[in-house]
Design a protein around this nucleic acid. Structure first.
Length: 272
DNA sequence: CACGAGACCTGTTCGC
DNA sequence: TGCGAACAGGTCTCGT
Protein backbone atom coordinates (compact mmCIF):
# COMPACT_ATOMS: atom_id res chain seq x y z
CA UNK A 1 0.00 0.00 0.00
CA UNK A 2 2.40 2.69 1.04
CA UNK A 3 5.07 4.50 -0.92
CA UNK A 4 7.19 7.43 0.21
CA UNK A 5 4.34 9.97 0.59
CA UNK A 6 2.12 7.54 2.51
CA UNK A 7 4.92 6.49 4.86
CA UNK A 8 5.92 10.15 5.35
CA UNK A 9 2.30 10.96 6.19
CA UNK A 10 2.09 8.13 8.72
CA UNK A 11 5.39 9.20 10.32
CA UNK A 12 4.21 12.80 10.65
CA UNK A 13 0.86 11.74 12.12
CA UNK A 14 2.52 9.51 14.72
CA UNK A 15 5.02 12.25 15.60
CA UNK A 16 2.77 15.29 15.56
CA UNK A 17 -0.38 13.62 16.82
CA UNK A 18 -2.78 14.33 13.97
CA UNK A 19 -5.91 12.18 14.13
CA UNK A 20 -4.62 10.41 17.24
CA UNK A 21 -2.23 11.38 20.04
CA UNK A 22 1.51 11.54 19.36
CA UNK A 23 3.48 8.45 20.36
CA UNK A 24 6.60 10.48 21.16
CA UNK A 25 8.08 9.97 24.64
CA UNK A 26 5.80 7.05 25.47
CA UNK A 27 7.33 4.08 27.27
CA UNK A 28 6.58 0.55 26.11
CA UNK A 29 4.97 -1.56 28.83
CA UNK A 30 4.32 -4.75 26.90
CA UNK A 31 4.51 -6.15 23.39
CA UNK A 32 2.05 -8.55 21.79
CA UNK A 33 3.46 -10.30 18.72
CA UNK A 34 0.48 -11.92 17.02
CA UNK A 35 2.13 -13.22 13.83
CA UNK A 36 5.64 -14.65 14.18
CA UNK A 37 7.00 -13.85 10.73
CA UNK A 38 6.14 -10.16 11.08
CA UNK A 39 9.26 -9.93 13.24
CA UNK A 40 12.37 -10.04 11.04
CA UNK A 41 14.82 -9.75 13.93
CA UNK A 42 15.75 -10.50 16.66
CA UNK A 43 14.08 -13.69 17.95
CA UNK A 44 10.61 -13.43 19.44
CA UNK A 45 11.89 -14.02 22.97
CA UNK A 46 14.68 -11.48 22.68
CA UNK A 47 12.39 -8.89 21.07
CA UNK A 48 9.77 -9.14 23.83
CA UNK A 49 12.41 -8.91 26.53
CA UNK A 50 14.39 -6.10 24.93
CA UNK A 51 11.66 -3.74 23.68
CA UNK A 52 9.85 -3.47 27.01
CA UNK A 53 10.85 -0.41 29.03
CA UNK A 54 12.21 1.54 26.06
CA UNK A 55 10.84 4.99 25.28
CA UNK A 56 10.06 6.36 21.82
CA UNK A 57 12.45 9.25 21.22
CA UNK A 58 11.94 10.04 17.53
CA UNK A 59 9.66 8.99 14.67
CA UNK A 60 10.99 9.33 11.14
CA UNK A 61 11.16 7.81 7.70
CA UNK A 62 13.91 6.46 5.45
CA UNK A 63 12.77 5.25 2.03
CA UNK A 64 9.58 3.27 2.77
CA UNK A 65 10.75 2.34 6.27
CA UNK A 66 9.32 3.93 9.39
CA UNK A 67 12.13 4.51 11.83
CA UNK A 68 11.43 4.80 15.56
CA UNK A 69 14.49 5.57 17.64
CA UNK A 70 13.97 4.09 21.09
CA UNK A 71 15.95 4.55 24.31
CA UNK A 72 18.60 2.04 23.27
CA UNK A 73 17.55 0.41 19.98
CA UNK A 74 15.94 1.39 16.70
CA UNK A 75 12.60 -0.07 15.62
CA UNK A 76 12.24 -0.28 11.84
CA UNK A 77 8.84 -1.01 10.29
CA UNK A 78 8.22 -1.78 6.62
CA UNK A 79 4.52 -1.77 5.67
CA UNK A 80 5.03 -3.59 2.32
CA UNK A 81 1.67 -3.98 0.52
CA UNK A 82 -1.03 -3.82 3.16
CA UNK A 83 0.49 -2.57 6.41
CA UNK A 84 -0.80 0.33 8.48
CA UNK A 85 -0.33 1.69 12.00
CA UNK A 86 -3.09 2.58 14.43
CA UNK A 87 -2.91 4.38 17.75
CA UNK A 88 -5.71 3.38 20.10
CA UNK A 89 -6.60 2.61 23.70
CA UNK A 90 -4.51 -0.19 25.12
CA UNK A 91 -7.61 -1.84 26.54
CA UNK A 92 -9.24 -2.20 23.14
CA UNK A 93 -9.10 -5.83 21.92
CA UNK A 94 -6.84 -6.52 18.92
CA UNK A 95 -8.32 -6.32 15.42
CA UNK A 96 -8.33 -9.47 13.23
CA UNK A 97 -5.28 -8.44 11.22
CA UNK A 98 -3.18 -6.85 13.97
CA UNK A 99 0.29 -8.47 13.76
CA UNK A 100 2.08 -6.59 16.54
CA UNK A 101 0.72 -4.39 19.32
CA UNK A 102 2.98 -2.24 21.49
CA UNK A 103 1.27 -1.23 24.72
CA UNK A 104 2.42 1.98 26.39
CA UNK A 105 2.45 2.79 30.09
CA UNK A 106 -0.19 5.50 29.78
CA UNK A 107 -3.11 3.49 28.38
CA UNK A 108 -2.37 3.92 24.66
CA UNK A 109 -1.20 1.29 22.20
CA UNK A 110 0.40 1.26 18.74
CA UNK A 111 -0.92 -1.54 16.51
CA UNK A 112 0.75 -2.79 13.32
CA UNK A 113 -2.18 -3.91 11.17
CA UNK A 114 -1.24 -5.93 8.06
CA UNK A 115 -3.81 -8.01 6.17
CA UNK A 116 -1.40 -9.69 3.77
CA UNK A 117 1.36 -10.38 6.31
CA UNK A 118 4.13 -9.08 4.03
CA UNK A 119 5.17 -6.32 6.45
CA UNK A 120 8.25 -6.69 8.62
CA UNK A 121 9.61 -5.23 11.86
CA UNK A 122 13.25 -5.07 13.00
CA UNK A 123 14.57 -4.18 16.45
CA UNK A 124 18.26 -3.46 16.17
CA UNK A 125 21.13 -1.44 17.59
CA UNK A 126 22.56 -1.16 14.06
CA UNK A 127 19.87 0.24 11.70
CA UNK A 128 22.41 0.68 8.88
CA UNK A 129 22.62 -3.07 8.64
CA UNK A 130 18.99 -2.98 7.42
CA UNK A 131 19.00 0.40 5.65
CA UNK A 132 22.55 0.32 4.32
CA UNK A 133 21.87 -0.68 0.71
CA UNK A 134 19.24 1.95 -0.02
CA UNK A 135 19.75 4.52 -2.77
CA UNK A 136 19.45 8.27 -2.20
CA UNK A 137 16.27 10.01 -1.02
CA UNK A 138 14.67 11.63 -4.07
CA UNK A 139 13.81 14.80 -2.14
CA UNK A 140 17.33 15.24 -0.74
CA UNK A 141 18.81 18.43 -2.25
CA UNK A 142 22.18 16.68 -2.31
CA UNK A 143 20.83 14.66 -5.22
CA UNK A 144 21.56 17.01 -8.11
CA UNK A 145 20.32 16.69 -11.69
CA UNK A 146 23.87 16.08 -12.84
CA UNK A 147 24.36 13.27 -10.36
CA UNK A 148 20.99 11.72 -11.23
CA UNK A 149 21.88 11.83 -14.95
CA UNK A 150 25.15 10.14 -14.16
CA UNK A 151 23.38 7.43 -12.12
CA UNK A 152 21.01 6.71 -15.02
CA UNK A 153 23.87 6.60 -17.51
CA UNK A 154 25.82 4.16 -15.35
CA UNK A 155 23.10 1.51 -15.69
CA UNK A 156 21.55 -0.31 -18.60
CA UNK A 157 18.03 -0.87 -17.28
CA UNK A 158 14.46 -0.17 -18.32
CA UNK A 159 13.35 3.08 -16.67
CA UNK A 160 10.39 1.73 -14.73
CA UNK A 161 12.05 -1.27 -13.06
CA UNK A 162 15.10 0.90 -12.32
CA UNK A 163 13.01 3.58 -10.59
CA UNK A 164 11.33 0.84 -8.53
CA UNK A 165 14.74 -0.50 -7.47
CA UNK A 166 15.24 0.78 -3.91
CA UNK A 167 19.01 0.44 -4.13
CA UNK A 168 18.97 2.89 -7.06
CA UNK A 169 16.53 5.47 -5.64
CA UNK A 170 14.65 5.02 -2.37
CA UNK A 171 10.93 5.54 -1.94
CA UNK A 172 9.18 5.26 -5.30
CA UNK A 173 6.58 2.51 -5.80
CA UNK A 174 4.22 1.57 -8.59
CA UNK A 175 1.91 4.58 -8.35
CA UNK A 176 4.43 7.40 -8.12
CA UNK A 177 6.70 5.82 -10.76
CA UNK A 178 3.85 5.78 -13.30
CA UNK A 179 2.91 9.33 -12.30
CA UNK A 180 6.48 10.64 -12.61
CA UNK A 181 7.09 8.99 -15.98
CA UNK A 182 3.85 10.41 -17.32
CA UNK A 183 4.66 13.90 -16.07
CA UNK A 184 8.15 13.65 -17.59
CA UNK A 185 6.67 12.27 -20.85
CA UNK A 186 9.04 9.30 -20.77
CA UNK A 187 8.21 5.71 -21.70
CA UNK A 188 8.66 3.08 -18.93
CA UNK A 189 10.49 0.78 -21.38
CA UNK A 190 13.11 3.33 -22.39
CA UNK A 191 16.62 2.30 -21.41
CA UNK A 192 18.16 4.38 -18.63
CA UNK A 193 21.40 5.01 -20.51
CA UNK A 194 19.65 6.66 -23.47
CA UNK A 195 18.27 9.73 -21.65
CA UNK A 196 19.73 13.09 -22.50
CA UNK A 197 21.01 15.33 -19.70
CA UNK A 198 17.85 17.41 -20.17
CA UNK A 199 15.53 14.37 -19.96
CA UNK A 200 17.25 13.21 -16.78
CA UNK A 201 16.75 16.64 -15.21
CA UNK A 202 13.11 16.62 -16.29
CA UNK A 203 12.60 13.16 -14.79
CA UNK A 204 14.08 14.20 -11.44
CA UNK A 205 11.87 17.29 -11.36
CA UNK A 206 8.83 15.11 -12.19
CA UNK A 207 9.68 12.61 -9.43
CA UNK A 208 9.98 15.41 -6.88
CA UNK A 209 6.81 17.07 -8.11
CA UNK A 210 4.62 13.96 -7.76
CA UNK A 211 6.14 13.03 -4.39
CA UNK A 212 5.57 16.54 -2.99
CA UNK A 213 2.02 16.57 -4.36
CA UNK A 214 1.43 13.17 -2.76
CA UNK A 215 2.70 14.40 0.62
CA UNK A 216 0.62 17.56 0.32
CA UNK A 217 -2.46 15.34 -0.23
CA UNK A 218 -1.49 13.15 2.77
CA UNK A 219 -0.89 10.23 0.41
CA UNK A 220 -3.28 8.23 -1.71
CA UNK A 221 -6.15 6.09 -0.38
CA UNK A 222 -7.20 3.48 -2.89
CA UNK A 223 -7.89 0.65 -0.45
CA UNK A 224 -11.13 -0.31 1.20
CA UNK A 225 -9.44 1.18 4.26
CA UNK A 226 -9.53 4.93 3.92
CA UNK A 227 -6.48 6.50 5.46
CA UNK A 228 -7.23 10.15 4.97
CA UNK A 229 -5.18 10.97 1.89
CA UNK A 230 -6.74 12.13 -1.35
CA UNK A 231 -3.94 11.96 -3.91
CA UNK A 232 -5.95 9.31 -5.77
CA UNK A 233 -8.11 12.19 -6.99
CA UNK A 234 -5.08 13.69 -8.75
CA UNK A 235 -3.77 10.62 -10.59
CA UNK A 236 -2.68 11.42 -14.16
CA UNK A 237 -2.06 7.84 -15.33
CA UNK A 238 -2.12 5.25 -12.53
CA UNK A 239 -5.31 3.18 -12.52
CA UNK A 240 -6.84 5.30 -15.30
CA UNK A 241 -6.82 2.85 -18.24
CA UNK A 242 -9.39 3.95 -20.82
CA UNK A 243 -9.78 7.40 -19.30
CA UNK A 244 -8.44 10.52 -21.02
CA UNK A 245 -4.85 11.64 -20.61
CA UNK A 246 -4.88 14.96 -18.70
CA UNK A 247 -2.39 16.38 -21.21
CA UNK A 248 -3.74 15.31 -24.62
CA UNK A 249 -7.09 13.62 -24.00
CA UNK A 250 -6.22 10.31 -25.63
CA UNK A 251 -7.07 7.19 -23.59
CA UNK A 252 -4.55 5.94 -21.03
CA UNK A 253 -3.40 2.40 -21.70
CA UNK A 254 -2.40 -0.36 -19.29
CA UNK A 255 0.57 -2.62 -20.00
CA UNK A 256 2.74 -4.91 -17.93
CA UNK A 257 6.37 -4.02 -17.24
CA UNK A 258 8.47 -6.21 -14.99
CA UNK A 259 5.32 -7.98 -13.79
CA UNK A 260 3.80 -4.72 -12.59
CA UNK A 261 0.69 -3.05 -13.94
CA UNK A 262 1.87 0.06 -15.79
CA UNK A 263 -0.15 3.01 -17.05
CA UNK A 264 0.92 5.31 -19.87
CA UNK A 265 -0.36 7.73 -22.45
CA UNK A 266 0.80 6.20 -25.75
CA UNK A 267 0.79 9.65 -27.36
CA UNK A 268 2.70 11.60 -24.71
CA UNK A 269 5.09 8.79 -23.76
CA UNK A 270 6.68 7.61 -26.99
CA UNK A 271 9.33 4.91 -27.14
CA UNK A 272 12.10 5.70 -29.63
C1' DC B 1 24.99 -7.37 -14.20
C1' DA B 2 20.16 -7.61 -16.11
C1' DC B 3 15.88 -9.91 -16.19
C1' DG B 4 11.94 -13.14 -15.56
C1' DA B 5 9.47 -16.35 -12.67
C1' DG B 6 7.97 -17.76 -8.35
C1' DA B 7 7.26 -17.08 -3.46
C1' DC B 8 5.27 -14.79 0.45
C1' DC B 9 -0.31 -13.69 1.96
C1' DT B 10 -5.36 -12.21 2.04
C1' DG B 11 -9.12 -10.00 0.05
C1' DT B 12 -11.80 -7.95 -3.79
C1' DT B 13 -13.34 -7.72 -8.38
C1' DC B 14 -14.02 -9.58 -12.91
C1' DG B 15 -15.57 -12.86 -16.43
C1' DC B 16 -18.14 -16.80 -17.62
C1' DT C 1 -25.74 -17.18 -7.62
C1' DG C 2 -21.34 -19.53 -7.93
C1' DC C 3 -16.64 -20.14 -8.83
C1' DG C 4 -12.10 -19.71 -10.54
C1' DA C 5 -8.94 -16.31 -12.36
C1' DA C 6 -6.79 -12.06 -12.14
C1' DC C 7 -5.30 -8.44 -9.59
C1' DA C 8 -3.47 -5.40 -5.58
C1' DG C 9 0.59 0.70 -3.18
C1' DG C 10 6.51 -4.57 -2.13
C1' DT C 11 10.56 -7.18 -1.91
C1' DC C 12 13.34 -11.42 -1.82
C1' DT C 13 15.49 -15.49 -3.96
C1' DC C 14 16.69 -18.37 -7.60
C1' DG C 15 17.58 -19.53 -12.33
C1' DT C 16 19.30 -18.16 -17.08
Amino acid sequence: MPELPEVETIARNLREGRGSPSILDRRIRAADLRWRRTLAEPSRAEFLRRVVGQRIRTVGRRAKFLRLDLTRDTLLIHLRMSGDLHVRPSAQPPAPHDRLVLHFEDGLALAFHDTRKFGRVWLTDDPDHVLGNLGPEPLDPALTAARFAQMLRARHRLLKPLLLDQTFLAGLGNIYTDEALHLARLHPLQSSDTLTEEQAATLLRAIRSVLRAGIRSHGASIDWVYRGGDFQNHFRAYGRAGQPCPTCGRPIRRLTVGQRGTHICPACQRLR
